[in-house]
């Protein structure tokens, strides 16, 4: 892993090790908040904040943490940043905070974040962990954007609140309800597999 250049470290989060499409991590927020693009973006940014700062902190104090209590220590670090993100959203963007509801505090149990600390930050330098966290978060945001765009356009005929489909379009309400989330992600996973196989064949 140490042989990778910094740019490779960054790019792997976007496709090869995309947290949602490849590793199937962090499914709960992914499915729950993607009923509108704005919620997806807010969730993506909040998770980015938590992931980047927890990775920096964990990477810088990794030598001080005894091995036996490392998971508990990571959780405390993560919980601190999640509380900050939660309070910030509640103070400056009350409507978004309201529509995301319990899912902002739930970032604390998002497996992507704990997974990156355990698999990466606890073994690598601060700079490398920072780049890794940025790449993973970007991959997460892209996945949320794709999913929420599909669901909002088909479910309400709008994108970020703007009308994109004409008045002839009858919204598929089911897409913004819970079943739509499962169906969209399931079909997307299948598509990603097909694209990936095409790519591998052409290499």
């Amino acid at each position: 892993m140490a042989s990778k250049t910094l740019s490779q470290e960054f790019i792997k989060g976007l496709w090869d090790e995309n947290p949602i499409f490849r590793q199937l991590l962090g499914m709960c927020p992914t499915l729950a908040v993607t009923n509108a693009v704005i919620n997806g973006i807010a969730m993506g940014l909040a998770t980015t904040f938590v992931l980047v700062f927890s990775s920096i902190v964990v990477a810088s104090i990794k030598k001080l943490i005894p091995n036996q209590v490392r998971i508990a220590s990571y959780i405390v670090v993560i919980a601190t940043f999640v509380t900050m993100a939660d309070r910030f959203l509640a103070a400056f963007f009350p409507p978004i905070s309201k529509s995301l509801g319990p899912y902002v505090p739930l970032i604390v149990v998002n497996c992507i974040i704990l997974g990156r600390q355990e698999a990466f930050s606890s073994k690598n330098s601060v700079g490398r962990s920072f780049i890794d966290a940025l790449g993973m978060s970007l991959g997460f945001i892209i996945a949320l954007l794709i999913l929420s765009s599909i669901r909002e356009i088909l479910g309400a005929g709008t994108w970020l609140g703007h009308q994109v489909l004409g008045p002839w379009f009858k919204p598929w309400i089911i897409m913004i309800l819970p079943p739509g989330a499962f169906l969209t992600l399931g079909v997307l996973l299948g598509l990603i597999m097909v694209i990936d196989r095409k790519l591998q064949r052409s290499v």
Partner: peptide, 23 residues
């Protein structure tokens, strides 16, 4: 099951249909 949907893909679609039923 179609090859690309094996594993997580089909599981999610089944979950979607179940959610529909619970509706």
């Amino acid at each position: 099951v179609p090859e690309p949907l094996k594993g997580a893909g089909i599981a999610l679609i089944v979950a979607g249909i179940m959610a529909l039923g619970f509706f």
